[in-house]
Computed example of a mutant assay.
Amino acid sequence: MVTVIDLFAGCGGLSLGAARAGLPPKLAVELDDHAAAAHSQNFPKCKTAKLDLSKVDAGALSSLYEGRPDLVIGGPPCQGFSYIGKRNQSDPRNDLLDRFFQIVADLKPRAFLMENVPGLLDKSSIHLLERALCRVSPKYTILTPTVLDAASFGAATRRKRVLVIGFDPSDVDFISLDAIIERQRAPTNVRQALAGLPEPGLADVAKIRQIDEPYVKFVNRKLPNVGDSGKLSALCDGLVSGFAATKHSEEVQRRFSETAQGRTEKTSRFFRLNPNEPARTLRAGTGADRGSFQSARPIHFESPRVISVREAARIQGFPDWFGFHHTKWHSHRMIGNSVNPLFAEAVLKAIANSLGVSKNESECHDLYFLDAATN
């Protein structure tokens, strides 16, 4: 069994993709209380450590697992590079990019994967990445940082991310970007992603109907080697969380109803989903330290309301058994901050092959993608 460490793990989008690829994480590190709790709940066989990586050295992490890590993955906070933020180059969170690669240098894994926002490659930011990469030993082969879109890997949302992949060529078969790009498939549209979900209501838990939509069956696959949080058992009975409704006034509902699919509502500036296309990137909003601002949620393509937590999770590629938080605000923030699990799985399957993980271990479920590519 390989040893995978997920840094800045959030609620577990990257961990989920890794587990699907036959690389279940043994250690996940996350500072946020609620995200760490969600990760621990969804990956009970993974040790989730609530630690501040700006203050913890690699020695402290090494005490939490055994042997040399096979793979270190993670997505350091990206607000200082994001196109939707202030793009403040002096944002102290930018230092965590440097910290990620310092930990990689100290842990000496066989391979590593860092994901971040495309703005990291801009002229104003690229020097920060170059400086951070200088911390990694020259023995590593580092692939050219590349921007890829989750929608190009069968996801139901457009979400561009930059990938930085490195590996020790003395211990790992060559990892190529071509092997990742070969896994690109047609995107999923919103209607396919939300199939079978009921309207939100007063209760957070609702009963969903089992349907034969390939995307839904694909995201709801069982997950080996991570344990059962109890949500999976509930899903077998059709019980799923994340359906607490958001209250809207009659005036707001009227404005939402009058907004065409694929258009922006003029007063709220909320975007209405187009059922025949992937969704726009779901945003996270800000944490308590930045004012607790909630990012605008998209309007459902049929109902005059914003989408529910479970609908956001489906769009982002999380299975119906995946739990978040009992409040909508924290749940939407986790989803908006997460790596798309389907995208992560496709990327990490290519890496898993180079690490020597067999196809049986990495669960080959490509039938959905083959179907999607012909639709």
Results as ranks from 00 to 15, higher is better:
297 R>M: 05
201 G>M: 05
58 A>R: 06
158 R>W: 14
62 S>H: 12
106 D>R: 11
349 K>C: 13
9 A>K: 02
70 D>N: 08
30 E>P: 01
74 G>T: 08
83 Y>Q: 06
112 F>R: 01
308 S>E: 09
321 W>N: 03
56 V>C: 09
181 I>V: 14
362 S>Y: 02
9 A>I: 04
326 H>F: 14
22 G>P: 03
127 H>P: 06
68 R>M: 05
35 A>H: 00
31 L>W: 11
355 L>Y: 08
1 M>F: 13
8 F>N: 00
139 K>G: 09
218 F>Y: 15
275 P>E: 12
344 A>R: 00
152 S>Y: 06
64 L>D: 05
82 S>I: 10
352 A>K: 02
216 V>T: 09
331 S>C: 08
86 K>S: 09
240 V>R: 03
172 V>G: 03
160 K>R: 15
84 I>V: 12
184 Q>G: 00
297 R>N: 10
117 V>G: 03
54 S>M: 14
237 D>M: 14
131 R>C: 02
346 A>V: 03
139 K>C: 14
188 T>L: 12
211 I>V: 15
11 C>Q: 01
63 S>P: 04
218 F>L: 10
240 V>E: 01
233 S>R: 14
61 L>C: 03
317 G>F: 07
146 T>R: 11
207 K>V: 11
220 N>L: 04
238 G>R: 05
233 S>T: 10
247 K>V: 15
197 L>Y: 02
280 R>E: 11
128 L>P: 02
97 L>A: 04
155 A>M: 11
337 N>I: 06
338 S>V: 03
117 V>E: 04
280 R>F: 13
60 A>W: 10
125 S>A: 15
289 D>P: 00
23 L>N: 00
193 A>I: 11
307 I>W: 13
189 N>C: 15
354 S>H: 04
89 Q>L: 15
8 F>G: 00
255 R>Y: 12
169 P>M: 08
287 G>E: 07
327 T>V: 12
129 L>R: 02
244 A>G: 08
96 L>C: 04
342 L>N: 01
6 D>W: 04
298 P>I: 04
43 F>P: 00
170 S>E: 10
226 V>D: 00
109 P>N: 01
9 A>S: 13
211 I>T: 13
41 Q>D: 09
124 S>N: 13
183 R>C: 06
84 I>S: 15
360 N>E: 14
267 T>W: 15
337 N>A: 11
101 F>T: 05
99 R>W: 07
124 S>E: 15
204 D>S: 10
206 A>K: 12
27 L>I: 07
258 E>V: 14
110 R>K: 15
217 K>P: 01
